[in-house]
Structures are given as structure tokens and as C-alpha cells.
Nucleic acid binder design. Structure first.
Lengths: 337, 337
DNA sequence: TTGTATGCGTTATCAC
DNA sequence: GTGATAACGCATACAA
């Protein structure tokens, strides 16, 4: 089934069919011809061949997206938003995890060989060298949930605000011995959440004990280990802000293994309101972040850049506002002994 | 950067470059010519244009995969296995969720327009009509973790075995009042897990109370609701087999809200050993299933079918053996009152 | 062993 | 308004 078959059946030349399919009503085609062609297309179930169209137009209507790991629930929201927006705009999202890519010769082969029109980078692990290589390709890319010195083509969330309101919640509950298991500071999100946290504590004139700030790695294990460290301190904190959902899970587990009751002995507040947060025991108090919206925005932005042929260096950074407290059971008022 | 540029620089004709890149050493090319060409390719960083190659060869080296939802942790393992195997075989995996597809005209447009060479279907929600439409396309597809009357092109797990050993574990612990929140029976997995469960109970001469069998839908909510039903029975069960991880989470939450202590008051065993199972409170006893291996096998199988041009009707079904008890804290010996 | 010619299916440009 | 034609970049059959 190709365009010639449609043309023959509709009694016109293939190029006419192509025009009807590629241009809107402003193009001068006799109304009845257009209708006959469209009817024939529908009848035969004709769909333009993707490869041929790509070759001719030098665009694929595909957008790539690199994530670290499909099993991280945070990324499912971003992917979902991105996928939905892509579909809405007539694009297809091609998601691959870091692990996959590493097997190929180049991280960016899809971009080089014309498989995709642009790339969303939502992984933390590309180093400066990789990004430099990427920038030299002169193809649109957007950093998602990540910002790096020297690049303004990013979409991020208001992580500083998130850290701020997490700390605010704990302070309002009367806590003063407040700890924070952070994300890695190189990631931007980790540093900004910490800064927001620190700002709120400073505003309340609460001195942050250095031993209460534990640098984590956004992993289950790191949450577990750092929480263990905190709970073996001479004076353990009464509240902990955990910088992402995996840290939260690891931290909860560590506390419970040590016999600490959440929230009676220790309050925990996390970031990212994933689907299972409400069914944890206890249900986790979190800051809900607009991950879905960030996915949508990233796709919207890259499509815009693709279509406007805007060089990456001229793209402006975008911060999606939002983040709100979802109060559940893992935090409660401080009870002085 | 195209093949002609390489050819010119290497002092040969483009067709020679093409041959060097597309055929192995059996093809007669002067050794030094081949080496010079390969060196030039490397030097210039030449990568063949994907669209042009597709158009010519009528294959894309891409495999599509439909999943219901990126947020379901079960699918991350399958995807990961599939993606890894695909990369290893020189293919790219294009994953899209059901939601995305529904926005397009056709469920299978990617298959029709030649974007992908074959399709893995790991979603439950395609009805008979969809599958019939798909079958008529005469393109390779494989049902993953799902079997349907009339189709033998599937890869599944040994779900009956999983149900059997889950029940076995509970029986060995001395339970007799054993309930089961099932998956939907239309899915194959749900029915087979139930059958395995039932077989083991039959073997032990345990009569299954009809009210102990609750039909669920593989969702958090359904686990929650059905568990609530079970716990309000005049004689609640002392052990429950929950048919997937989402049901497990919902069920645990329902039990805890009602003041039941897991496992002292009620034991819970689930299926699928996802990353956070060990950090739940209590840590969930599960049956670990070879999801990753199923993803690998599905890709391997579809590539084989693509390359052998084997019609779907001649493909044989495949069951991946495996499934083992991961003993944690959510199950314990029955304590008679 | 290498070069030449052709066509994959589509769309853009030009002619009518 | 519509038809003819060339070109996108590559791989292959055939010629040399």
C-alpha cells in the first residue's frame, strides 16, 4: 500500500495525494478532488511510509529521552507527561535508559543517524565530556530536571521551594532537631533542595548541626545507611527531610528496624508523591512535585526548538513552579520529653 | 556527513564503502581498501542515515513494545530485560504505554508505517477485535506475559507454579484459612495463579471457602477494597495470597488500617519481587518471577521471527520457567487461638 | 576487486 | 489545479 496505489484508485497523480496529505486547506486543490483522495486514503488504510518521509523531509517526528532507570517511579511520571504531550503534537517518544545506551558505540547515535529530531536528557550521569560531544552535534536537546553550568537549555522544578516547604512543615510541627538526607549536590536538584531547607531553618534561627546533614545518592541503600548514621548519634534528630522517594523508603526501613516509631519517635517527610506513598506504613508525608508537567513542558520546548531550528545556545531555561505539601502520617508534632 | 563523503576521502566509490559496512569479511574486498575505508569512517564519525537505510532495506531494526503504564514496577523489569537484549542484538526498543497509543488513529500505526519491525504486546487491554486487526497486518508480534485463545506467539511465565508455591508456603506455615485476591481471569496470569493456588490447597485437602476468593484487578485500589471485604467476614482468613505487587500494597494498607498486625494477625504473600519490597513495613514475602528474563526472551524471539520471516501463526509459545519464594517478614506460622 | 546504475516511497519544484 | 520529475541517502544487481 503506497501513495501510487492511492493515486491510481483516486484517478490522480501521486503528487496530488501527497499535497492533500501534507498541506492544509489553504493549498489550492479542487474540493471534490481532495475529498475523493481523502476517502480513498481512508478506504485503503494508507499510511505514509515513515522511512521515505524521513529521508525526504529530514525529520522523524521522534523525540528521544534518556532516563537512568525504568524502575525509578519518579521517571514514570515524567515519561508519562512527555509521552502524552508528544502524542498530542504528533510526535513519538523514544525512551531509553542509560544502561541501554552505554552498549552502543555512541551515547547519541540516534541523534547522529537521524532516528530522532531531538533529545531529552533526564539522567544525571552524563559528564561534561559527554555534554560537550553532544553540544557539538548541533542538534536540539534539553536537560530535564537538571541544570548544568554553561547550559541554559533546561527544564527544572522549583526544588528550592520544595526544600523550603518541607523544612517549614517540620518547623511548624515544633521540631528543632531536624536532619536532612540530601541528594548529590552535583545534580542541581540535590543542592537546591538543601538550600531551600537551609533557608527555612535559618529564617527560624535554627542552627543546623553538621552531623544532621547527610549526603546521600538518591538510592534506597543510601537512605538506609544515612538514616542508620543519624539514629546512632548521641542526640538523634526528631525529624528528617529525605531528598527523594528512594531515600525516604530506605530511611523509613532503617528507623523501623531500629525500633523507632514513625512519626512518634521520628518524623519523615519526603519529596515526590508517587503512587504507593499513601499505602506505605505509615503513609508518607511528601512534597508533590509537578513531574508530569515537567515532562509535558520539556517535550513542548524541544518541539518548539526543533521547529524553529533554534540553536541550543539560544534556548532559555524554564522552571516549572509548583510543589505542595501532601500531609499524611509520617510526620507529627514534636513531643518534648 | 554521508557515504559519498567517506568514499571521496577514502578514494573509492560509495558502493564499496557500503559493502564494507554491510557485509562481513567473507566479501572480497582488498584488505587495505577495507582498512582504509574503516579508518575513514571512524575518522569522520560517519553513521549511516537511518531513514535511507530503512527505505532501502525495508527494515528498521526497531522493536516496539506496548505496556499499560510506566508506573507499574513489574514492567520496568520486563522493559529492562527487553532493552538490554535488543541493544545486544543491534536493535532499539521503542516502548509506549497504552495511553499514548490511544491518541493515535491506530493502535498499530508504527507497525503499519514501517517505524518498527515487530511488536511486543505486554498490555492486557487489547480486545479480540484489536488483535484480529493486528493479525491481519502480517507483521511479527509477540504477546508478552499474556496468552490468548487462538494465538501461540506468546512468552509467558510459569504463573501456575507461582500460585502453587505461594499457597505451599502458607500451608507449610500451618494456615488453613487461606484467602486469595486474584488478578482478572481474562489475563491468563490471573487465572493460572489461581489454578496453582487451588491445586496446592486441593492437594492439602483444604476446602476453599468461596468468600475467600476475591476477584481483583491488579490495582492498588482493588487490593485495598478486597482486603477490606476479607477482614470484615465473620471468620477472616489468617493468610492471604495477593496476586500482584499492587494488590499486595493495597491489601497491606487495608489490614493495617483495620488494626491487623502483619504477620501476627494475618500473613500476606505476593507475587513479583520489586525493588522496594524489602523496605516495606513489614518487608513483603514474595515469589520472585523471572520478569527480566521474560523481557529478554521476548525480544530474542521476535528478532528470530523477524529475521526468519516466520508468520505469526507458525510461532510456538514459550514458557519461561522459574519463580522462587523470597521469605521476608509478612508471613509467619499460624498461631491457633 | 571495484565502479555504475537503479530504485526504495515520498515530497518539493517546476511546468503545464 | 494538476501532472511530471528530481532528489533525499543508501544498498544491491550487474557490468567491468
Amino acid at each position: 500500500m503506497k501513495i501510487k496505489d492511492v493515486a491510481k484508485k483516486a484517478g490522480v497523480h501521486a503528487s496530488v495525494v501527497s499535497r492533500v496529505l501534507n498541506h492544509d486547506a489553504t493549498l489550492k486543490i479542487k474540493k471534490e478532488t481532495r475529498e475523493r483522495i481523502l476517502a480513498t486514503v481512508k478506504e485503503l488504510g494508507y499510511v505514509p511510509n515513515h522511512a521515505a518521509r524521513n529521508l525526504k523531509k529530514n525529520e522523524t517526528k521522534m523525540i528521544g529521552m534518556i532516563i537512568p532507570d525504568f524502575s525509578n517511579p519518579v521517571y514514570s511520571s515524567i515519561i508519562h507527561g512527555a509521552e502524552t504531550m508528544a502524542a498530542q503534537e504528533g510526535y513519538t517518544l523514544l525512551v531509553y535508559s542509560k544502561k541501554h545506551i552505554a552498549k552502543n558505540n555512541s551515547y547519541f547515535s540516534h541523534l547522529v543517524d537521524g532516528k530522532i529530531d531531538g533529545l531529552l536528557i533526564a539522567t544525571l550521569e552524563l559528564d561534561g565530556q559527554d555534554l560537550k560531544e553532544l553540544a557539538e552535534l548541533d542538534k536540539p536537546f534539553i536537560l530535564v530536571n537538571r541544570s548544568i553550568e554553561g547550559f541554559n537549555n533546561y527544564v527544572v522544578l522549583d526544588d528550592e521551594h520544595a526544600g523550603y516547604i518541607a523544612a517549614d512543615h517540620l518547623i511548624e510541627l515544633g521540631h528543632t532537631n531536624i536532619a536532612h538526607i540530601t541528594g548529590p549536590f552535583e545534580t542541581g536538584t540535590g543542592l537546591k533542595r538543601y538550600n531551600g531547607f537551609k533557608n527555612r531553618l535559618d529564617n527560624a534561627n535554627i542552627t543546623i548541626k553538621p552531623e544532621y546533614i547527610r549526603k546521600g545518592t538518591y538510592s534506597l541503600l543510601s537512605g538506609y545507611e544515612e538514616m542508620n548514621q543519624l539514629l546512632t548519634l548521641p542526640e538523634p534528630p526528631t525529624a528528617v527531610f529525605t531528598a527523594n522517594i528512594l531515600i525516604s523508603l530506605g530511611a523509613m526501613r532503617a528507623a523501623q528496624e531500629k525500633g523507632f516509631v514513625i512519626p512518634d519517635d521520628i518524623s519523615i517527610i519526603g519529596i515526590h508523591d508517587v503512587a504507593f506513598a499513601p499505602v506505605l506504613n505509615p503513609a508518607l508525608t511528601t512534597i508533590n512535585m509537578p513531574l508530569y508537567e515537567m515532562g509535558e513542558a520539556a517535550v513542548q520546548k524541544i518541539i518548539e526548538n526543533i521547529q524553529a531550528k533554534r540553536p541550543n545556545s539560544e534556548v532559555k531555561g524554564l522552571m516549572i513552579k509548583g510543589g505542595e505539601l501532601i500531609l499524611r502520617e509520617s510526620t507529627s508534632a514534636h513531643k518534648p520529653k
